[in-house]
Design a protein around this nucleic acid. Structure first.
Lengths: 125, 125
DNA sequence: CACCTGTATCGATGAGCGTCAACATAGACG
DNA sequence: CGTCTATGTTGACGCTCATCGATACAGGTG
């Protein structure tokens, strides 16, 4: 159930390619709400296995990969599935069943939003 | 104890301002070692309170702030101290006692390294 | 020196998370 | 329809972590 439900970490403003959840970290102190939203993304990438899976998908051809292609991360198959689900719930990945295999694909706008988060707003001093 | 011990998440290559621990996420599948290193940074920012504290320091004037200026995040003072220690251990902050107060300051090179991690290598989708 | 303020540490507690084995489901193929 | 492969789900276990109150330490002030 809830296959279509994935809490978006971005404002899905139509017409805007990537509306970030928050300003750059260095621009303003985060509010409790902004911090909660952004921390969810960071926490999703805060596990080595998840980071490897995400990197494997992101670096794969076309930005998508079958589970069978990336499941060699040293943990059991249920654990891989569990982490992929977590990444999907965090809005970092989307999944699509294609015949026997399930393909995961990165959400490019989220990547851009996170990059903007860490972009130094004022590099001077 | 271990006041001077802070595991650096960057290669402290002399002469190189910011030597990132890892390539961009989209460039190559992370190795187990790279993932472990990078995940430590993400995990440090994966808590709303820590993210607020870090953002408060990063956005403060001069990139540094006294604890008394940023400790209004809804948790007790020991918890604030605990999270600041975690951020320091992750290499994201440095601390310096100046009289009565302790000032925390961001490590700019780490911020740049993390930004590079999330920089899309191939923006042409 | 006594006292006050700011910050760190300690010990405990409760919640959350990563992991696995076992089982369930989906599609392909005969 | 039966079976095989690929993937997701469930339940349980152990560990880590976020949080707090109490306490300790540091430094300024009288």
């Amino acid at each position: 159930m809830s296959n279509t439900k994935a809490l978006p970490l971005l404002d899905p403003a139509p017409g805007e390619a990537a509306a970030p959840c928050c300003p750059p970290l260095t621009e303003r102190p985060f509010t409790a709400d902004e911090a909660e939203t952004a921390a969810r993304m960071f926490k999703a990438l805060g596990d080595p296995v998840r980071l490897r899976l995400f990197s494997a998908v992101a670096s794969h051809e076309g930005g998508e990969a079958c589970v069978c292609d990336i499941s060699d991360v040293g943990v059991s198959q249920p654990t891989v599935s569990h982490h992929l689900k977590k990444l999907k719930e965090a809005g970092l990945l989307t999944s699509e069943r294609r015949g026997t295999w399930v393909f995961y694909r990165v959400e490019p706008s989220v990547l851009a939003a996170m990059g903007r988060l860490l972009t130094r707003a004022a590099p001077t001093s």
